[in-house]
Design a binder for these strands. Structure first.
Length: 501
RNA sequence: GCCCCCAUCGUCUAGAGGCCUAGGACGCCACCCUUUCAAGGUGGAGAUCAGGGGUUCGAAUCCCCUUGGGGGUACCA
């Protein structure tokens, strides 16, 4: 067989969805593994719901994930690239019209003048009679006179495909042989709306045929629709591509992943600080495995291993906890400069949201990388981790300042002693972690305190939180002046609560 | 309702008749490391392979049934 051609065909009716991204990824990986061509086509025939904003979101986030396509539009409203242009269905309308005309001429398709009300009544009647819903065929055998009468009556016909009575059999690359009786697909289905715009099942086949797709790799939700597509391929006189239906990505309750129950927009994951490397790695392993025990894999490594044989048949629950773990793995692999660069937008967002008062420079950030890199589950958690460094002041209440095993009086005494020690024994110039720690340990020992308790009191006083990166590194990052200021403020807070108590 | 698909630890999965008294990873628990939090290390609990019948010397792996779950059933995609 010739070079494989595969595609992703998103509808710009919503932001890039986890499921779409996963399907795009599998197609991309398949193309790269086989030396094939990966095409992106925009299915924008649902004019009422399609927007350029969604188109922009989809294209941009696929780029962000590193999923590159060989043919199709590169950007929203941008020009198409590739020999089968255009790749937006609304710009391919004549082609569908030509195909429809051809089918009409062969009587493979016929005009249907049924009104929505009639159709609705049919459906209700069938439901009441416990019959499966299907088009009753009212317009299937209209005479030319009857048609003319309908038209004269002002009715605009939709085009319906004549579904032949047969069993459609096909081989699915992941599921094996599938057989569906056309008696069960709902009767003659509409292919072109009354207003002349084509419908999904029609456009997808016309385009897949014209664009010479060799493999249709898509979600399992299309498995039941495949007979319609096969019938259409035959009607159009085109050879069948191979089909591969991927297992669905599921909500925790095992229903098809949805916006209602899960976070489905890729943009939201990016905004929270998930790395594209982690998203891709995670998505690839939802419904596919290498067959080995490898699991931390880059896009290139995935492309070198991907195959349809190891695609799972059953649906896969989207486990966000596992994603977070993988994200941590990828964050730890980043170079210092790379991490700093990727953190920047998140720090700016923290500043814009008022969570920090100013954004550190790359040089301020650099010495912190060793102590934060292994503590970041996501890039977005940086503010939560070390935001106290760029807040003008931290607020702590007296209760929080007192370590578990201590009382307020001890804490006050300890903070005063620590403050004095830092003020007296360390200079601004040599304010280093190595120099800060010994006097504090000595202090704890001389008073019979556990070093950990002393450290905790200082930690809370200076950062406003009980969980932070190592204390002395935090003090160094804060600088002598601010450490003393914050210790003073904490001491004052404690003194006041002593008085009122 | 009807049609189709699916079914291994809570989750993602390895497994294509004997290598499985079912392996790995996430999560969980314990311990180690340790100033907190992480990260890391070690160990542990966790699946009678949905259930029942076959086939076979032998089945998680093949067949059938049952049950459960999911998807599809639009002039949406």
């Amino acid at each position: 067989m010739s070079v494989p051609r595969v595609r992703i065909a998103p509808s710009p009716t919503g932001p890039l969805h986890i499921g779409t991204a996963r399907t795009a990824l599998f197609n991309y990986l398949y193309a790269r593994r086989t030396g094939g061509t990966f095409v992106l086509r925009l299915e924008d025939t649902d004019v009422a719901r399609s927007t350029v904003g969604f188109e922009a979101d989809i294209l941009e986030l696929l780029h962000w994930l590193g999923i590159a396509w060989d043919e199709g539009p590169d950007s929203a409203g941008g020009e198409d690239r590739g020999p089968y242009a255009p790749y937006r269905q609304m710009q391919r309308l004549e082609r569908y019209a030509v195909a429809a005309k051809e089918l009409l001429a062969k009587d493979l398709v016929y005009p249907c003048y049924c009104t929505p009300e009639e159709l609705d009544a049919d459906r209700k009647a069938q439901e009441a009679a416990h019959l499966p819903p299907r088009y009753v065929g009212r317009c299937a055998n209209l005479t030319p006179e009857e048609r003319a009468a309908k038209v004269a009556d002002g009715r605009r016909g939709a085009l319906r495909f004549r579904v032949p009575a047969e069993k459609v059999r096909f081989h699915d690359e992941v599921r094996g042989d599938v057989e569906i009786d056309t008696a069960n697909i709902g009767g003659d289905f509409v292919v072109v709306r009354g207003d002349g715009t084509p419908l999904y099942h029609f456009t997808v086949v016309v385009d897949d045929a014209e664009m010479a797709m060799t493999h249709i790799i898509r979600g399992e939700d299309h498995l039941s629709n495949t007979p319609k597509h096969i019938l259409l391929f035959h009607a159009l006189g085109h050879a069948l591509p191979k089909f591969a239906h991927l297992p669905l990505i599921l909500n925790p309750d095992r229903t098809k992943m949805s916006k209602r129950k899960s976070q489905t927009a890729i943009a939201d994951y990016r905004a929270q600080g998930y790395l594209p490397e982690a998203m891709v790695n995670f998505l690839a392993l939802l419904g596919w495995s290498t067959g080995t025990e490898e699991e931390i894999l880059s896009l290139d490594e995935l492309a070198g291993r991907f195959d349809l044989e190891h695609v799972q048949k059953g649906g896969a629950v989207f486990d966000k906890v596992r994603l977070e773990w993988l994200n941590g793995q990828w964050i730890r692999k980043l170079s210092t400069d790379d991490l700093i660069a990727r953190l920047q937008p998140f720090l700016e967002a923290d500043r814009d949201a008022g969570r920090i008062d100013h954004v550190p420079t790359a040089e301020e950030l650099r010495p912190l990388v060793p102590i934060i890199q292994e503590r970041l589950p996501t890039l977005g958690s940086v503010g939560e981790l070390i935001g106290f460094l760029w807040q003008d002041r931290v607020t702590v209440d007296a209760a929080m300042l007192v370590p578990k095993r201590w009382d307020a009086a001890t804490t006050l005494e300890a903070l005063r002693a620590a403050r004095d020690s830092i003020a007296e024994t360390t200079g601004a110039v040599t304010f280093e972690a190595d120099e800060l720690e010994p006097p504090m340990r000595a202090l704890a020992e001389s008073r019979g305190w556990k070093a950990g308790d002393l450290f905790m009191a200082i930690r809370v006083a200076v950062t406003g939180r009980t969980a932070t990166p190592p204390l002395f590194d935090s003090l160094v990052a804060l600088g002598r002046e601010r450490v003393l200021e914050r210790l003073d403020a904490a001491i004052t807070t404690l003194e006041r609560s002593e008085v009122s108590a």
